[in-house]
Amino acid sequence: MFTPIQLNLPPYPAKLTKENETVFIFDELRKKRLVLTPEEWVRQHWIHYLHQQKKYPKSLMKTEGSLKLNTLQKRSDLLIYNSLGKKIILAEFKAPNVKITQAVFEQIANYNTIHQIPLLLVSNGLEHFYCKISFDSHSYEFLKELPDYDVS
């Protein structure tokens, strides 16, 4: 059983429940209880942070978005859209004990060959990386901070 740990994100009042020996966390986006795993703990903190601190509307966030990579069916951890329905952020979350390595960046880069999203977020809850992609110049740059939601 996973015991929640303090992340490098603001704490929030997570709705945790226990049934037998299984702990559940309430997912505000899907409006249902999910088994509390280390990766889900990170994802739920990010959803709360993006909504409360960065002002991204929950209605524009989608978890577990399906995509087809070659012949494999994959799921992205979090997709964020703008008000026009265009994908603006692709996020990949790992458990706090999983190091953010080149392989993690390759995973999100592979997903992004399908999505073509300009901002990437990679986090294990302790370390966070933000990357801005320029498809025109085939380049990228790491950002110090993820931008706030732009309502324009």
Rank of each mutant, 00 (worst) to 15 (best):
89 I>M: 07
40 E>R: 13
77 D>A: 05
69 L>E: 01
70 N>E: 14
34 L>Y: 03
90 L>W: 09
39 E>L: 02
82 N>K: 08
35 V>S: 02
79 L>S: 06
37 T>S: 11
83 S>M: 08
47 I>P: 06
85 G>T: 07
57 P>A: 13
71 T>L: 03
36 L>K: 13
23 V>L: 01
66 S>L: 02
24 F>W: 14
55 K>M: 13
77 D>N: 09
44 Q>N: 13
65 G>P: 05
41 W>M: 01
91 A>M: 05
82 N>C: 08
69 L>C: 05
78 L>W: 13
67 L>I: 12
44 Q>F: 02
77 D>L: 03
70 N>K: 08
72 L>E: 01
64 E>R: 08
25 I>Q: 05
54 K>E: 07
77 D>V: 03
70 N>D: 07
49 Y>Q: 10
69 L>A: 04
45 H>E: 06
38 P>N: 09
91 A>C: 12
83 S>E: 10
43 R>E: 03
28 E>H: 05
27 D>P: 11
62 K>Q: 15
54 K>V: 05
87 K>Q: 09
45 H>Y: 08
22 T>K: 07
61 M>P: 09
85 G>K: 10
46 W>L: 15
72 L>D: 07
72 L>Q: 11
46 W>D: 04
43 R>Y: 00
58 K>I: 09
59 S>L: 12
65 G>E: 15
28 E>C: 01
36 L>E: 14
49 Y>L: 04
32 K>E: 14
22 T>L: 06
83 S>P: 00
48 H>C: 02
45 H>S: 04
34 L>T: 06
65 G>T: 13
58 K>Y: 13
63 T>F: 05
64 E>F: 00
30 R>F: 02
24 F>E: 04
76 S>K: 00
86 K>L: 00
54 K>I: 05
36 L>T: 14
76 S>F: 00
40 E>H: 14
44 Q>A: 03
25 I>N: 04
85 G>R: 10
66 S>Y: 02
37 T>M: 03
64 E>G: 03
58 K>M: 12
67 L>P: 00
61 M>I: 11
27 D>L: 08
91 A>Q: 06
34 L>F: 07
84 L>C: 04
23 V>R: 11
61 M>L: 10
44 Q>V: 03
74 K>I: 02
56 Y>H: 11
53 Q>F: 15
91 A>T: 05
88 I>T: 10
48 H>K: 06
73 Q>H: 06
73 Q>N: 09
57 P>L: 12
82 N>V: 09
